[in-house]
Write a protein that binds this DNA or RNA. Structure first.
Ligand SMILES: [Mn+2]
Ligand SMILES: [Mn+2]
Ligand SMILES: [Zn+2]
Ligand SMILES: [Zn+2]
Lengths: 136, 136
DNA sequence: TTGCTACAAATAAAAATTATTAATTAGGAG
DNA sequence: CTCCTAATTAATAATTTTTATTTGTAGCAA
Protein backbone atom coordinates (compact mmCIF):
# COMPACT_ATOMS: atom_id res chain seq x y z
CA UNK A 1 0.00 0.00 0.00
CA UNK A 2 1.09 3.58 -0.45
CA UNK A 3 1.48 4.48 3.22
CA UNK A 4 3.29 2.13 5.53
CA UNK A 5 1.58 3.61 8.57
CA UNK A 6 -1.84 2.54 7.37
CA UNK A 7 -0.54 -1.00 7.28
CA UNK A 8 1.06 -0.51 10.65
CA UNK A 9 -2.21 0.56 12.24
CA UNK A 10 -4.10 -2.31 10.70
CA UNK A 11 -1.50 -4.83 11.77
CA UNK A 12 -2.11 -3.68 15.32
CA UNK A 13 -5.84 -4.08 14.91
CA UNK A 14 -6.49 -0.37 14.87
CA UNK A 15 -8.63 1.61 12.49
CA UNK A 16 -6.56 3.71 10.13
CA UNK A 17 -8.31 7.02 10.57
CA UNK A 18 -6.90 10.11 8.83
CA UNK A 19 -6.03 11.56 12.23
CA UNK A 20 -4.02 8.53 13.25
CA UNK A 21 -2.27 8.36 9.92
CA UNK A 22 -1.34 12.03 10.17
CA UNK A 23 -0.05 11.55 13.70
CA UNK A 24 2.10 8.60 12.73
CA UNK A 25 3.39 10.34 9.61
CA UNK A 26 4.42 13.28 11.76
CA UNK A 27 6.20 11.16 14.33
CA UNK A 28 7.88 9.21 11.58
CA UNK A 29 9.10 12.38 9.92
CA UNK A 30 10.42 13.95 13.14
CA UNK A 31 11.70 10.72 14.64
CA UNK A 32 10.71 11.86 18.13
CA UNK A 33 8.02 14.42 18.89
CA UNK A 34 6.01 15.67 21.84
CA UNK A 35 2.25 16.26 21.92
CA UNK A 36 2.46 19.93 21.01
CA UNK A 37 4.81 19.38 18.11
CA UNK A 38 2.56 16.67 16.76
CA UNK A 39 -0.55 18.80 17.17
CA UNK A 40 0.98 21.84 15.47
CA UNK A 41 2.10 19.84 12.47
CA UNK A 42 -1.01 17.74 12.07
CA UNK A 43 -3.14 20.87 12.20
CA UNK A 44 -1.63 21.94 8.90
CA UNK A 45 -3.12 19.04 6.98
CA UNK A 46 -6.16 18.71 9.24
CA UNK A 47 -7.04 22.15 10.62
CA UNK A 48 -10.05 20.95 12.61
CA UNK A 49 -8.28 18.24 14.55
CA UNK A 50 -8.69 18.56 18.28
CA UNK A 51 -5.78 18.49 20.71
CA UNK A 52 -7.79 16.00 22.74
CA UNK A 53 -7.78 13.69 19.74
CA UNK A 54 -4.00 13.81 19.65
CA UNK A 55 -3.84 13.01 23.35
CA UNK A 56 -6.34 10.21 23.08
CA UNK A 57 -4.63 8.60 20.13
CA UNK A 58 -1.14 8.89 21.53
CA UNK A 59 -2.35 7.18 24.69
CA UNK A 60 -4.07 4.48 22.68
CA UNK A 61 -1.06 3.85 20.47
CA UNK A 62 1.28 3.66 23.44
CA UNK A 63 -1.05 1.17 25.10
CA UNK A 64 -1.04 -0.95 21.96
CA UNK A 65 2.76 -0.75 21.97
CA UNK A 66 2.91 0.83 18.55
CA UNK A 67 4.41 3.97 20.04
CA UNK A 68 6.89 4.35 22.87
CA UNK A 69 7.14 7.19 25.33
CA UNK A 70 10.54 8.80 25.81
CA UNK A 71 10.43 10.61 29.14
CA UNK A 72 12.95 13.44 29.33
CA UNK A 73 14.46 15.44 32.15
CA UNK A 74 13.37 19.04 31.78
CA UNK A 75 11.26 18.56 28.64
CA UNK A 76 7.86 17.14 27.89
CA UNK A 77 7.83 13.48 26.95
CA UNK A 78 8.37 12.64 23.32
CA UNK A 79 6.99 9.70 21.39
CA UNK A 80 8.53 7.48 18.75
CA UNK A 81 7.38 4.56 16.65
CA UNK A 82 8.65 1.40 18.26
CA UNK A 83 11.66 0.02 16.49
CA UNK A 84 14.73 -2.05 17.27
CA UNK A 85 16.36 -1.46 20.60
CA UNK A 86 18.55 1.62 20.57
CA UNK A 87 19.90 4.35 22.76
CA UNK A 88 19.33 8.11 22.79
CA UNK A 89 21.47 11.19 22.64
CA UNK A 90 19.45 13.98 24.25
CA UNK A 91 20.42 17.63 23.89
CA UNK A 92 20.06 19.52 27.16
CA UNK A 93 19.60 22.78 25.28
CA UNK A 94 17.06 22.10 22.54
CA UNK A 95 15.71 18.72 23.68
CA UNK A 96 16.48 17.03 20.38
CA UNK A 97 16.60 13.25 20.60
CA UNK A 98 18.87 11.26 18.32
CA UNK A 99 18.96 7.50 17.93
CA UNK A 100 22.23 5.69 18.32
CA UNK A 101 23.23 2.06 18.32
CA UNK A 102 22.91 0.32 21.68
CA UNK A 103 25.91 -1.84 22.45
CA UNK A 104 24.85 -5.39 23.15
CA UNK A 105 27.30 -5.57 26.02
CA UNK A 106 25.25 -2.97 27.89
CA UNK A 107 22.13 -5.02 27.41
CA UNK A 108 23.75 -8.08 28.91
CA UNK A 109 25.13 -6.16 31.86
CA UNK A 110 21.67 -4.74 32.56
CA UNK A 111 20.08 -8.15 32.54
CA UNK A 112 22.72 -9.40 34.93
CA UNK A 113 22.14 -6.42 37.17
CA UNK A 114 18.41 -7.16 37.23
CA UNK A 115 18.99 -10.79 38.14
CA UNK A 116 21.32 -9.82 40.96
CA UNK A 117 18.60 -7.60 42.41
CA UNK A 118 15.65 -9.94 42.14
CA UNK A 119 14.15 -7.69 39.50
CA UNK A 120 12.11 -8.99 36.59
CA UNK A 121 13.84 -7.30 33.65
CA UNK A 122 11.66 -6.03 30.81
CA UNK A 123 13.34 -3.20 29.06
CA UNK A 124 16.37 -0.95 29.13
CA UNK A 125 16.75 2.72 28.40
CA UNK A 126 20.13 4.33 27.94
CA UNK A 127 19.87 8.10 27.69
CA UNK A 128 22.96 10.15 27.10
CA UNK A 129 22.50 13.82 27.95
CA UNK A 130 24.75 16.49 26.50
CA UNK A 131 24.90 19.26 23.91
CA UNK A 132 24.12 18.53 20.28
CA UNK A 133 26.28 19.85 17.47
CA UNK A 134 23.84 22.59 16.43
CA UNK A 135 23.58 23.91 19.97
CA UNK A 136 27.28 23.67 20.76
CA UNK B 1 25.48 19.94 63.00
CA UNK B 2 22.60 17.63 63.77
CA UNK B 3 21.03 17.61 60.31
CA UNK B 4 23.22 17.00 57.30
CA UNK B 5 20.69 18.61 54.98
CA UNK B 6 21.04 21.97 56.71
CA UNK B 7 24.74 21.82 55.93
CA UNK B 8 23.95 20.68 52.43
CA UNK B 9 21.70 23.67 51.78
CA UNK B 10 24.24 26.10 53.19
CA UNK B 11 27.06 24.58 51.20
CA UNK B 12 25.01 25.36 48.11
CA UNK B 13 24.47 28.93 49.24
CA UNK B 14 20.81 28.39 50.03
CA UNK B 15 18.92 29.45 53.11
CA UNK B 16 18.04 26.52 55.32
CA UNK B 17 14.35 27.13 55.79
CA UNK B 18 12.25 24.56 57.65
CA UNK B 19 10.37 23.87 54.42
CA UNK B 20 13.54 23.06 52.52
CA UNK B 21 14.89 20.95 55.33
CA UNK B 22 11.65 18.99 55.50
CA UNK B 23 11.66 18.49 51.74
CA UNK B 24 15.23 17.22 51.73
CA UNK B 25 14.63 14.99 54.73
CA UNK B 26 11.67 13.47 52.93
CA UNK B 27 13.55 12.84 49.71
CA UNK B 28 16.44 11.43 51.68
CA UNK B 29 14.16 9.06 53.53
CA UNK B 30 12.32 7.86 50.41
CA UNK B 31 15.34 7.89 48.15
CA UNK B 32 13.25 9.01 45.19
CA UNK B 33 9.96 10.89 45.45
CA UNK B 34 7.61 12.87 43.27
CA UNK B 35 6.04 16.23 44.09
CA UNK B 36 2.85 14.77 45.53
CA UNK B 37 4.64 12.26 47.72
CA UNK B 38 6.88 14.98 49.07
CA UNK B 39 3.95 17.32 49.69
CA UNK B 40 1.90 14.69 51.49
CA UNK B 41 4.73 13.76 53.83
CA UNK B 42 5.97 17.27 54.53
CA UNK B 43 2.43 18.33 55.39
CA UNK B 44 2.56 16.05 58.41
CA UNK B 45 5.31 18.02 60.12
CA UNK B 46 4.32 21.34 58.51
CA UNK B 47 0.56 21.34 57.93
CA UNK B 48 0.43 24.83 56.46
CA UNK B 49 3.02 24.31 53.76
CA UNK B 50 1.80 25.20 50.31
CA UNK B 51 2.09 22.88 47.35
CA UNK B 52 3.45 25.84 45.41
CA UNK B 53 6.29 26.05 47.91
CA UNK B 54 7.18 22.46 47.21
CA UNK B 55 7.16 23.12 43.47
CA UNK B 56 9.22 26.28 43.79
CA UNK B 57 11.81 24.69 46.01
CA UNK B 58 12.15 21.55 43.96
CA UNK B 59 12.74 23.70 40.89
CA UNK B 60 15.26 25.83 42.75
CA UNK B 61 17.14 22.85 44.13
CA UNK B 62 17.28 21.18 40.75
CA UNK B 63 18.65 24.38 39.24
CA UNK B 64 21.34 24.52 41.93
CA UNK B 65 22.14 20.90 41.13
CA UNK B 66 21.44 19.74 44.65
CA UNK B 67 18.57 17.61 43.41
CA UNK B 68 18.25 15.62 40.22
CA UNK B 69 15.11 14.92 38.27
CA UNK B 70 14.38 11.33 37.33
CA UNK B 71 11.93 11.42 34.44
CA UNK B 72 9.90 8.24 34.17
CA UNK B 73 7.79 6.66 31.47
CA UNK B 74 4.18 6.54 32.66
CA UNK B 75 4.79 8.17 36.06
CA UNK B 76 5.38 11.67 37.29
CA UNK B 77 9.03 12.65 37.59
CA UNK B 78 10.75 11.80 40.83
CA UNK B 79 13.58 13.67 42.51
CA UNK B 80 16.64 12.49 44.36
CA UNK B 81 19.54 14.10 46.16
CA UNK B 82 22.49 14.12 43.80
CA UNK B 83 24.98 11.41 44.64
CA UNK B 84 27.54 9.31 42.87
CA UNK B 85 26.69 8.13 39.41
CA UNK B 86 24.41 5.14 39.48
CA UNK B 87 21.71 3.39 37.54
CA UNK B 88 18.03 2.80 38.23
CA UNK B 89 15.73 -0.15 38.42
CA UNK B 90 12.23 1.15 37.75
CA UNK B 91 9.13 -0.91 38.49
CA UNK B 92 6.56 -0.63 35.72
CA UNK B 93 3.78 -1.50 38.17
CA UNK B 94 4.35 0.67 41.23
CA UNK B 95 6.91 3.13 39.90
CA UNK B 96 9.41 2.41 42.62
CA UNK B 97 12.96 3.46 41.76
CA UNK B 98 15.93 1.57 43.15
CA UNK B 99 19.56 2.55 42.89
CA UNK B 100 22.05 0.08 41.52
CA UNK B 101 25.71 0.25 40.72
CA UNK B 102 26.54 1.61 37.29
CA UNK B 103 29.18 -0.43 35.55
CA UNK B 104 32.09 1.75 34.53
CA UNK B 105 32.30 -0.04 31.20
CA UNK B 106 28.91 1.40 30.26
CA UNK B 107 30.11 4.87 31.08
CA UNK B 108 33.10 4.52 28.79
CA UNK B 109 31.01 3.13 25.95
CA UNK B 110 28.62 6.05 26.26
CA UNK B 111 31.40 8.58 26.08
CA UNK B 112 32.77 6.87 23.00
CA UNK B 113 29.32 6.87 21.45
CA UNK B 114 29.02 10.60 22.09
CA UNK B 115 32.38 11.31 20.51
CA UNK B 116 31.49 9.28 17.45
CA UNK B 117 28.38 11.39 16.99
CA UNK B 118 29.84 14.83 17.51
CA UNK B 119 27.90 15.12 20.74
CA UNK B 120 29.19 16.96 23.79
CA UNK B 121 28.72 14.36 26.51
CA UNK B 122 27.54 15.56 29.92
CA UNK B 123 25.70 12.84 31.68
CA UNK B 124 24.40 9.33 31.33
CA UNK B 125 21.20 7.74 32.52
CA UNK B 126 20.67 4.01 32.49
CA UNK B 127 17.13 3.08 33.41
CA UNK B 128 16.13 -0.53 33.64
CA UNK B 129 12.38 -1.08 33.52
CA UNK B 130 10.79 -4.23 34.85
CA UNK B 131 8.79 -5.61 37.77
CA UNK B 132 10.06 -5.24 41.32
CA UNK B 133 10.01 -8.12 43.78
CA UNK B 134 7.03 -6.80 45.75
CA UNK B 135 4.94 -6.41 42.60
CA UNK B 136 5.97 -9.71 41.01
C1' DT C 1 -31.78 0.14 5.14
C1' DT C 2 -31.16 -0.08 9.84
C1' DG C 3 -28.65 -0.48 13.84
C1' DC C 4 -24.20 -0.84 16.11
C1' DT C 5 -19.61 0.54 17.24
C1' DA C 6 -15.59 3.20 17.05
C1' DC C 7 -14.12 7.47 16.60
C1' DA C 8 -13.76 12.60 16.22
C1' DA C 9 -14.81 17.54 17.31
C1' DA C 10 -16.27 20.59 20.50
C1' DT C 11 -16.43 21.73 24.80
C1' DA C 12 -16.30 21.27 29.77
C1' DA C 13 -13.98 19.70 33.69
C1' DA C 14 -10.16 18.35 36.30
C1' DA C 15 -5.35 18.16 37.37
C1' DA C 16 -0.86 20.09 37.29
C1' DT C 17 2.09 23.93 37.31
C1' DT C 18 3.35 28.75 37.64
C1' DA C 19 2.58 33.66 38.94
C1' DT C 20 1.22 37.32 42.15
C1' DT C 21 1.06 39.58 46.46
C1' DA C 22 1.33 40.58 51.18
C1' DA C 23 3.28 38.83 55.33
C1' DT C 24 7.00 36.38 57.65
C1' DT C 25 11.67 34.98 58.56
C1' DA C 26 16.73 33.49 58.09
C1' DG C 27 20.92 35.18 58.42
C1' DG C 28 24.06 38.77 58.56
C1' DA C 29 25.63 43.71 60.19
C1' DG C 30 26.32 46.33 63.83
C1' DC D 1 21.45 40.38 71.16
C1' DT D 2 18.75 43.55 68.15
C1' DC D 3 17.69 45.36 63.89
C1' DC D 4 17.48 45.29 58.95
C1' DT D 5 16.72 43.46 54.56
C1' DA D 6 16.51 40.34 50.89
C1' DA D 7 14.78 35.91 50.47
C1' DT D 8 11.14 33.04 51.29
C1' DT D 9 6.51 31.60 52.38
C1' DA D 10 1.28 31.05 52.47
C1' DA D 11 -2.51 32.05 50.22
C1' DT D 12 -4.55 32.70 46.48
C1' DA D 13 -5.24 33.41 41.41
C1' DA D 14 -4.07 32.39 36.87
C1' DT D 15 -2.36 29.53 33.44
C1' DT D 16 -1.27 25.32 31.27
C1' DT D 17 -1.85 20.56 30.60
C1' DT D 18 -4.55 16.56 30.47
C1' DT D 19 -8.83 14.01 30.73
C1' DA D 20 -13.89 13.48 30.49
C1' DT D 21 -18.39 14.25 28.42
C1' DT D 22 -21.52 14.96 24.86
C1' DT D 23 -23.11 14.82 20.39
C1' DG D 24 -22.66 13.79 15.71
C1' DT D 25 -20.71 11.01 11.91
C1' DA D 26 -18.73 7.21 9.16
C1' DG D 27 -17.98 2.47 8.37
C1' DC D 28 -19.53 -1.89 8.66
C1' DA D 29 -22.73 -6.06 9.62
C1' DA D 30 -27.15 -8.01 9.78
MN1 LIG E 1 14.49 6.67 19.46
MN1 LIG F 1 18.83 7.23 42.25
ZN1 LIG G 1 20.51 20.94 20.75
ZN1 LIG H 1 6.75 -2.50 42.02
Amino acid sequence: MQNINIELLKSYGLKATPQRIDILNTIEKLGHANIDEIYEIVKKSNPTISLATVYKNITALVEKALLKEVALNNFKSKYEIIKDRHSHLICKVCGKVTDVELNNEILLLSEQLSNNNNFNYKDIELNIYGICSSCA
